[in-house]
């Protein structure tokens, strides 16, 4: 028996349906995880991550003053 026989016997519709359902289940699980209350604090902290690493912009005048 070849792999193509197994795939062929399973039919096209079942592949499409199984794929669709698996994607839906995955999306459902992600949604539950995302909105789980226990993650709220961690996510709230993570929101600010880009804002805590700022490099200063050096103005030309400031640099000249320090030179």
């Amino acid at each position: 028996m070849r792999l193509s026989d197994i795939v062929g016997a399973s039919g096209l519709v079942s592949w499409a349906e199984a794929g669709f359902l698996s994607a839906m289940v995955a999306v459902g699980l992600i949604t539950v995880y995302t909105f789980a209350r226990r993650n709220l604090d961690r996510f709230e902290q993570a929101r600010f991550m880009p804002l805590v690493d700022d490099d200063p912009i050096v103005k030309k005048e400031d640099r000249d003053e320090h030179a």
Binding site: T31, Y33, T34, F35, F43, E44, A46, R47, P50
Partner: peptide, 10 residues
Amino acid sequence: PVFSYKLSIL
């Protein structure tokens, strides 16, 4: 900060 971190994960 980004409006919603939860939404970004989703």
